[in-house]
Design a protein around this nucleic acid. Structure first.
Lengths: 338, 338
DNA sequence: GTGGAGACGGAATACGTTTTCTGTTGACAG
DNA sequence: CTGTCAACAGAAAACGTATTCCGTCTCCAC
């Protein structure tokens, strides 16, 4: 080793040795002063801090990690290529992790087991303090196996012993159903996403239960698309001419529903009230009329996950259940429009 | 230090010492064997590798970073909260960085200078090997000041001495203009985004130049929204009844344009051909009809940025100019539909 | 003046690698 | 049989910090 390989650039980097020298103390004392540990006179602490400030000292996280056994780094593992759902989750998590001085390593597996394995190895090698796992949907996923704290966000682990933060699809559907009922609708249809998604089924069944005999026909399962929303409307108006409400499994579907209804000369919400799900701005706000929907509060979910992970890392006890985020109802013109 | 603080979990972590012992060599030799460096007999190398394999050895990146002066980590700094444009860029960059054994620290500044400063400090502290900076739009941004390699992607640095990978808005607009002309349109309007965005102006002026006297009236500046697309159509049909083409500054605008044209009974593309910009699937594919548009190849841009950064880190020479990604024309039914 | 208790700061060690430098071995030519 | 050289492997220093003892110093009560 040439001795300055680690110091890129011309100016030599400031080390704690330099700070200690300037402050006239040993490096041990300097370390304590900078980390607020040990027993030091107030005056000494300040002297060291001033020295660090003056020299522009930035602690080398590598040395610290090696010595303290903490890397102050966590991994964020997603199967979702940073998709629509995982991004808010990650932002929320990043928020609180950052406040906890944690850096976040991004690991996008793209649903490829090989890539996932690769990333897990990389995280293990870097001795991260913990990992947040998130994904594309709310189906259970197989747990990752690492000897360190892991929190699952959005996509829960199939092992109940793991810490998983989930959202309450059913509760969201109930809110929307109650809302439709409260505005006096009593001939309501439900247009769902694909039946292979757990979320689609949870939402549909929760809504059905709430609608009771106000439900018209059976829930229609299709796909998460505007096209399917339009198709569903054609089916519904043919079979149930007296509809006055359509609850949809997603905002995308709802937007398609609104478009088709308008084309058929039906007024939303005067003739038929429509609800979405997800509060995806691109759909919910751009729809004509804008959609009454349910906001999943994914950022809050991410924040909860981040806090849980910090607790786990600090060795504080963390609840294994009840970690559920309650969605909120967002009312817009598709149900209460004038 | 208690001696096992660094070893979370019950089972003690395998160190290179253990590998060396099992292979019957010194740790120096083991290191060389595992890193393919130094002069070792083939047989020795394999013996060490087998030992590592058998013990499930995962190299501690902290020690390696400290010793080698390379952290094998880069920062990805975005002002964009992982928005529509920065995500593909980041995915592309992550792709090639990962292939280069680099881990990626995500830093979302949310356009807040304080947060940016915080992140830069964190990255400096972690002694990352380099940084990729990206952002919300293609306007120039003030360079970050670190003593390490930096590559700007999508949002170029205002300092021409920096390495910036950009895209060619003008070229994309020309492609679309040429396409409209090639299918025989000669009364064409241009509906742009807000004039405060550099990209909006570049696209509009490039298209105007190409259209020549085929351009109808002046380019209309508004906002990046479907609503504006619909409004623009109302203006255009009132003032120029004989239009046969509308080029739009974004897919969102184009989708609004298509919607409104359909409502007015105009056929797309039979009566009026429409083009978008960006190839944002949610808009371009969901539009009726699907949009002919320009794909910016943001992932490719990200890959270029990643490669440039790897070159910079390795000390290889990197071009300061000409780092421009050429977009591609995507033809769909809004111009060539049957 | 003596003993003891805190308060404080320093020396030393540990963390897990990489890399340089040096030494050993064996082969081979003269 | 000697000298030279290449191939190989090991010892040791270095990277920058945290933390654990200890030793010293000050202060105070008796």
């Amino acid at each position: 080793m040439t001795g300055d390989v680690g110091n890129r650039g011309s100016a030599s980097v400031v080390r704690i040795t330099d700070v200690a020298a300037l402050a006239g103390v040993s490096i041990g004392t300097a370390s304590k002063a900078l980390n607020n540990t040990g027993q030091l006179r107030r005056e000494t602490r300040e002297r060291v801090r001033d020295a660090a400030e003056k020299l522009g000292f930035i602690m080398d996280a590598r040395g610290r990690a090696l010595s303290s056994g903490r890397s102050y780094t966590v991994g964020m593992l997603t199967t979702d290529s940073f998709g629509r759902f995982s991004i808010p989750v990650m932002l929320g998590a990043e928020d609180v992790l950052n406040a906890g001085q944690m850096a976040v390593l991004m690991c996008d597996t793209r649903d490829d087991p090989v890539r996932e394995q690769h990333y897990l190895r990389s995280l293990a090698s870097r001795r991260v303090d913990g990992v947040i796992v998130t994904g594309r949907n709310t189906d259970y996923r197989t747990p990752v196996d690492l000897g360190m704290p892991v929190v699952y966000a959005f996509s829960p682990s199939s092992d109940p012993a793991d810490v998983s933060i989930t959202l309450d699809d059913g509760r969201g559907a109930e809110m929307l159903a109650d809302h439709l009922i409260s505005i006096g609708r009593h001939r309501i249809a439900y247009v769902s996403g694909p039946s292979r998604h757990a979320a689609a089924i949870k939402r549909a069944t929760a809504a059905e239960a709430r609608f009771g005999d106000r439900l018209v026909g059976q829930s229609l399962y299709g796909e998460w698309s505007e096209r399917w929303g339009r198709q569903a409307v054609d089916i519904l108006v043919r079979e149930h001419g007296d509809l006055d409400g359509i609850a949809c499994g997603s905002d995308q579907i709802a937007r398609g529903v609104c478009d088709r209804l308008r084309e058929l000369g039906k007024s939303v919400p005067a003739d038929i009230a429509v609800t979405g799900f997800d509060d995806w701005d691109v759909m919910a706000m751009a729809s004509r009329p804008p959609l009454t929907t349910v906001n999943l509060r994914l950022e809050e979910l991410g924040r909860l996950a981040g806090r849980a992970l910090l607790d786990l890392i600090a060795g504080r006890p963390v609840a294994r259940e009840g970690l559920v985020v309650e969605p909120t109802l967002v009312m817009r013109e598709s149900t209460i429009g004038g």
